[in-house]
Amino acid sequence: MEVTIYPIKRAARRYPAAFWGSVGFLAVLLTLALLAAYLTPYPADASGQMHFEQKLLPPSLRHLFGTDSIGRDIFTLVIYGARLSLISAFGVVGVALLLGVPLGLIAGYKGGFTENVIMRVCDAFLAFPPLLLPIIFTAALGPSLKNAIIAVAVSWFPWYVRILRAQVLAVKQAPYITASRAMGISSLRILYNHVLPNSFAPVLVQATLDMGYAILTVAGLSFIGFGARPPAIEWGLMITSSRATFLDFWWTAFFPGLALFLTVFAFNLSGEGLRNILNTGDVL
């Protein structure tokens, strides 16, 4: 939509540091992740090459982030790890939105018994401690990154239902909705044309902020063995693998941790920035 470009351009101009720090960082990360094979010094390491003679070397010019316990270049692994982390982020948030948005729309717009049923189911999901539900799901489905992503998404979508429903309740009172109904426009079309676009903003902000948490949660699951499993390369997994070594060889945990931190931070900044843009009332 043409109207979307102007606020973003304006934001880039007004808050350069925050904008480039967050969106810029993420863009770079995405590029690195996609073109990892061409941009990393030792792409072979990512596919399980072992160089025991190079193991646990400290950071140097040859190995920017040092090497791990089986001699793989950590810099390469961190870049490759970005792939799975970004997949986790988009995967979790994407699936949660896919589940949460339609349910939130229906709950808010239809109201009555349907709304009650949907909201009580959400209440049930939200009653669980944050990590417990994903652990239960992955334990049931079998640990893998894919299952971890689905598990986290399924535990999270109720938040989006709530946020969207709250917005829909406010929007559906507006006279322009009544006007469309009085014209005879079908409910489905009203939901799609009017209600959803006008309710989506808070969900979008929350989703962007959640990207960071998604990565952390999946990394956390991987850390305790319920998510990605070797030989997959994922930041959480890298940290857990370094448990034995990081006390003496700090770089084995530090750099994956740093990557995790910076990425989550960048997503958070983007989310805040998005919220600020939307609060100025510009059409997005």
């Binding site: 006279p175 009085a182 014209m183 044309n193 009017h194 676009p197 006008n198 059409v283």
Partner: peptide, 13 residues
């Protein structure tokens, strides 16, 4: 139909 509040009678987007 015409409503009371002109600002709210139109989809802001």
């Amino acid at each position: 139909v015409v409503f009371q509040q002109p600002q709210l009678s139109f989809d802001p987007r």
